[in-house]
């Protein structure tokens, strides 16, 4: 009994709300990868163990599995702080912003970098609760500044928007190159 207690003491750590959910999910992920090792890597004949393509994936996944099980045990042994599902809800709330980000990514090749960045900055500023004229103008100006600095000055590799092709001749070439 005292040995079990000693072991428990040895694994005890500071545990934040939601820790056990993460520990279980990571454990499952590690076991899933372990189960796929045979199918997702090849064993090459007449090749030594250290040169096998599956050697390093096996080492890393075994390490992940062992450490994640120990991490889970540590979570079980440590005192709990209330608020597990509130914390999980916090994680899930990030999906909303991820969705906005991906819509923005999808819009850039159509609308063009400058208009989509300005619109995205404005939308996000409104979404997070800014209503003052100063904040809204700052967001739009920031979007414009970023687009101009990176596309016009630094010539970063971002495609021009489909929409630019419908612009009048006088500005089309400029927009395709710099905006």
């Amino acid at each position: 009994m005292s040995r079990i207690k000693t072991l428990q003491e040895l694994f005890k750590r500071y545990r934040r709300p939601g820790d056990i959910v993460f520990a279980i999910l990571f454990c499952f992920f590690s076991f899933f990868l372990l189960s796929q090792l045979e199918f997702q890597t090849k064993w090459v004949a007449r090749t030594k163990l250290y040169a096998q393509p599956s050697f390093w994936p096996a080492v890393s996944i075994l390490g992940m599995t062992i450490f994640s099980v120990l991490h889970y045990i540590g979570s079980l042994c440590s005192p709990r702080i209330a608020g597990r599902w509130t914390e999980v809800w916090f994680w899930l709330r990030s999906a909303e912003y991820v969705l906005y980000f991906l819509i923005y990514v999808a819009l850039v090749p159509w609308l063009g970098y400058l208009p989509s960045t300005m619109s995205f900055a404005l939308f996000l500023a409104l979404r997070v609760g800014y209503r003052s004229r100063q904040a809204i103008l700052s967001a739009v100006a920031f979007g414009m500044g970023v687009a101009i600095i990176f596309r016009a000055f630094l010539q970063v590799k971002i495609p021009s928007g489909e929409l630019y092709n419908h612009l009048p001749d006088a500005v089309r070439a400029f927009a395709l190159t710099y905006l």
Partner: peptide
């Protein structure tokens, strides 16, 4: 606002 700036720059 910093969050807005960082996500735009991350793109």
């Amino acid at each position: 606002f910093l969050g807005v700036m960082i996500i735009i720059l991350s793109f």
